[in-house]
Structures are given as structure tokens and as C-alpha cells.
């Protein structure tokens, strides 16, 4: 009898040890940044695209900042996933980030801001971040950071466009996107991904048709252009989907 009790005790100890190794209800949440032109995955350095003004173009550089990425739950909880995330098309490691062991909840929407709002966009504020030198904007022109550098050639391979956006001279052209989602994290889903896609051609098409031959070069100090691009951005540049 004594032996039986001992065996039982040891067995239950082993079971407890093993089961405590398993993390119950673990789900890792990955945010991916994807890029398309006319709904096809972006191919860089290839003049295969055309905007609504009928100009052919390629994409050689794409660097941008997304801020305040926040997930909202049905019960009112909010989780900030990233304060500022820098994406550089030449560096795959910037295309995603993962939050491990994401809390259970019914998530109903996600919001994310293109660029930096005035509070986040002051001179040298992000001086020790990897994007500081690539995105800084001269102090004499208002300081802070570019939101986006989208560059390439258009029409032929020796005329260039530089779509640089950002809040110059104190202007704030950042904009918030809110997308409804239906994501219930209540058990071990493994890895769930929320994909934030930038449809590059839509920066130039609607409601404002933007042609490179008129506005291709320097637009940072052109407030009208910054507004036009912002309006296009709000309209249909970003979209969200979920993969489980």
C-alpha cells in the first residue's frame, strides 16, 4: 500500500512538472508590412508600373515610419504594439515584428499612423534610432523626420522622382488609419499575423492625380503637395488582413 501511494505521488509529480512546462493559451502576434502595386507584390528596380497620369515608373527606394500601432479589444482594452516602426524595403528584417504570448481577448480594430505626429516629430528626438540618419530632416527647414522616402525613375531610367513626405515647418501631415478586424485570441493559435499593406500606386491616383513630371522632384517644402499626398494616403493606400 505504502509503495502504491509513493508511486502515485511520484507519477503525479511528474505529470505536474510536465504540464507546467506547457504554456497554456500561447499565441504570438506578428505584424507584417507588405507592399503592392496594383495588388501585385512589389518588385523593385523594374520599370513595370504606371500611375493614373500614364507615366511608367520603377521603385528603387522605400523607407517609411509607422507609429502608434494599437490594437483595440471589445472590452475596451488597448494594447500599443509599437510606438514607432521603421520599414526599409532594402532590409527584410524591418518587414515585421512579433509580440510573443499575446493576451487573450476579442480584438475588434487596429489603428496605425502613417508618419509621426507633431509630438513625435521634433528635431533629434530619435537620435539613437537606426532610422535617424536616413530619415532626419534639416533643423533649418523645421527639423524632425521624413515620414516616407519613395524614390525611383519614371518614363526613362534617367529621370527621377522623389516622393518625400513629412511635416515641414511645423506642419503635421501624418494620418491615422483605423481598420475593423475580427480576431479572437482565446487559445493556442500558434502564430497569428496582422498584415498592413501599402498599395504604392494609390499614393498618386485618387482623389488627387499626381504626375511625376510636374511634382516629381522636390516636394518636401510644397505644402499643397504634402496635403494632396496625405489625402490620397487616407483614401486607399493602406489595408489590413489577418492570417492564422
Amino acid at each position: 500500500m505504502k509503495e502504491t501511494i509513493q508511486t502515485l505521488f511520484i507519477t503525479s509529480l511528474i505529470i505536474m512538472t510536465f504540464s507546467s512546462c506547457e504554456k497554456p493559451n500561447q499565441t504570438d502576434l506578428t505584424i507584417n508590412f507588405t507592399h503592392t502595386v496594383d495588388a501585385e507584390e512589389l518588385t523593385t528596380n523594374s520599370m513595370i508600373y504606371s500611375n493614373s497620369a500614364g507615366e511608367n515608373y520603377d521603385v528603387r527606394t522605400l523607407k517609411y515610419l509607422i507609429s502608434d500601432i494599437t490594437l483595440y479589444a471589445e472590452n475596451g482594452n488597448e494594447i500599443i504594439l509599437s510606438d514607432i516602426h521603421f520599414i526599409d524595403i532594402s532590409d527584410e528584417s524591418t518587414f515585421s515584428f512579433t509580440v510573443e504570448d499575446f493576451p487573450n481577448n476579442n480584438y475588434t480594430s487596429i489603428s496605425y499612423k502613417m508618419g509621426l505626429d507633431t509630438i513625435k516629430n521634433t528635431n533629434n528626438l530619435h537620435i539613437n534610432e537606426s532610422y535617424h540618419s536616413a530619415m532626419a530632416w534639416p533643423e533649418t527647414n523645421g527639423g524632425g523626420y521624413h515620414y516616407m522616402k519613395l524614390e525611383g525613375a519614371y518614363n526613362n531610367d534617367s529621370t527621377f522622382y522623389n516622393t518625400h513626405t513629412g511635416g515641414t515647418m511645423g506642419g503635421d501631415y501624418s494620418f491615422n488609419n483605423v481598420d475593423n478586424i475580427s480576431l479572437t485570441i482565446d487559445d493556442d493559435l500558434g502564430n497569428v499575423s496582422i498584415n498592413i499593406n501599402m498599395e504604392i500606386n494609390n499614393w498618386y491616383n485618387s482623389p488627387n492625380q499626381i504626375d511625376f513630371s510636374s511634382y516629381g522632384m522636390g516636394i518636401m517644402m510644397n505644402m499643397m503637395m504634402q496635403m494632396d499626398i496625405k489625402m490620397n494616403g487616407i483614401t486607399d493606400v493602406f489595408s489590413v488582413d489577418i492570417t492564422k
Partner: peptide, 25 residues
């Protein structure tokens, strides 16, 4: 000269920006 350097007319700052005067790229 500084104004030209920092404008998109001279456009020196995109590569030689920040107080390090280089983008390290």
C-alpha cells in the same frame, strides 16, 4: 551656402545630413 545645402535645390543634406554630415549609406 547653408540654405542651399539644406534645400532641395542644392540637395546636399539627403546624403550628407545630420550633424555627422553623412547618412552612413
Amino acid at each position: 551656402g547653408y540654405a542651399i545645402y539644406n534645400s532641395e535645390q542644392g540637395d546636399c543634406f539627403h546624403c550628407h545630413g545630420t550633424l555627422l554630415f553623412t547618412d552612413n549609406l
